[in-house]
Design a binder for these strands. Structure first.
Lengths: 191, 191
DNA sequence: TGTTATCTACCAACTAGTAGATAGAATGTC
DNA sequence: GACATTCTATCTACTAGTTGGTAGATAACA
């Protein structure tokens, strides 16, 4: 019943997400998406009346995707070090398939220009990531897998900031900074 | 002779930098600057024919400011830990006086939409920061002040990413994440 | 027949940027 | 010193293109 519709809707979110990650929220327009998908601007407005609606949908889907990732048996069953690598892979993926940064990083720098609902959803996204990493590092240290000074929530900020920043610097300097930074984080959690 | 002119020119760069740090390069217009300074758009075009010229001037001035900071006797004469704190202060300043992120972070996420000359200048800015931090950490470790695993240029990426990301997350969540992250970096350089 | 999804054809506001007038200051010339 | 000229910096007024968004026709579908 909703087959074709959902398809278009999904394609619009896909294209929107791609452009958002590449150019930032103020760096693309409905015309860009229409061109990319070979449809008309007004068709996008049918599915997402305002640009804020589309932006919100992109962030909401990303949050769902992450919580789905967390709950996957395959992931949950993993050893700490493997799980950390898998988490890094989420970020590395952006780098590989398109010259993008991560969603949280992109939304954070555009933050003041975003409509309220998108700001709230962005807060939620960043909180999700920080909370998960905090919990993951804390448990890992208690189990004896990880070792780091101070409290886990501060270390979580460090790890996430390095993911974000590593992606951003890698793109700008076009050198393998992300992988070096990820390796350094692994070192810091061992020593 | 160039008194008034330079004054206006400087004021335009000031206003442009402020808006750039707050909203990103695609998040402000000449009209915004004109309004803020109480002048006309065309006066801005007189000093900076295109928006790219203004953007370039903002980055160039920031690079000069940083290299000036590095060369200041007061800074050069400082002990390592004090110098690190002073470096953190540069970033913390953005947070204090306006809800901004740092210039390198802002330019990095807008990167693909920037005109070539601005991209090149951004590369230069990020390189300046990374090179300085790399050298600073390396010397500090050789002197026995700092301690960290791996090579200093990887650790430099970590420190800078945490500055950038700490600022960004602090603004979004409106909680004192920046100071916590800075403290954690200090811990990581001790242990 | 009513609903869903797409289209064509608009619109007002805003974008970066240009052309040309004008006022005042600096400079050259007699 | 007086006068003309050039330069600097700003203004008003405009343009072409883009932005997000709307109205209404039309087709496809259930």
């Amino acid at each position: 019943m909703r087959r074709l519709t959902d398809n278009t809707r999904t394609k619009i979110i896909d294209a929107g997400e791609k452009l958002l990650l590449k150019n930032g929220f103020n760096g693309f327009s409905y015309a860009d998406i229409a061109l990319a998908l070979g449809i008309k601007k007004s068709s996008i407005h049918y599915h997402f009346p305002s640009k804020a609606d589309l932006g919100l949908a992109v962030i909401q889907r990303a949050r769902q995707r992450f919580s789905g990732w967390c709950e996957r048996r395959e992931i949950a069953a993993m050893a700490d070090w493997d799980k950390l690598d898998r988490f890094f892979e989420i970020y590395r993926h952006y780098l590989t398939k398109s010259e993008s940064v991560c969603l949280s990083g992109a939304m954070q720098t555009d933050f003041t220009t975003l409509p309220k609902p998108m700001q709230e959803e962005t807060k939620g996204l960043v909180s999700d990531l920080l909370n998960w990493m905090d919990n993951f590092l804390d448990k890992g240290r208690k189990r004896g897998t990880f070792s780091f000074p101070g409290i886990s929530c501060d270390q979580a900020v460090v790890v996430l900031a390095v993911m974000q920043g590593g992606l951003q610097m890698n793109r700008v300097l076009d050198s393998p900074i992300f992988d070096m930074a990820a390796a350094q984080i692994r070192c810091l959690l061992k020593s």
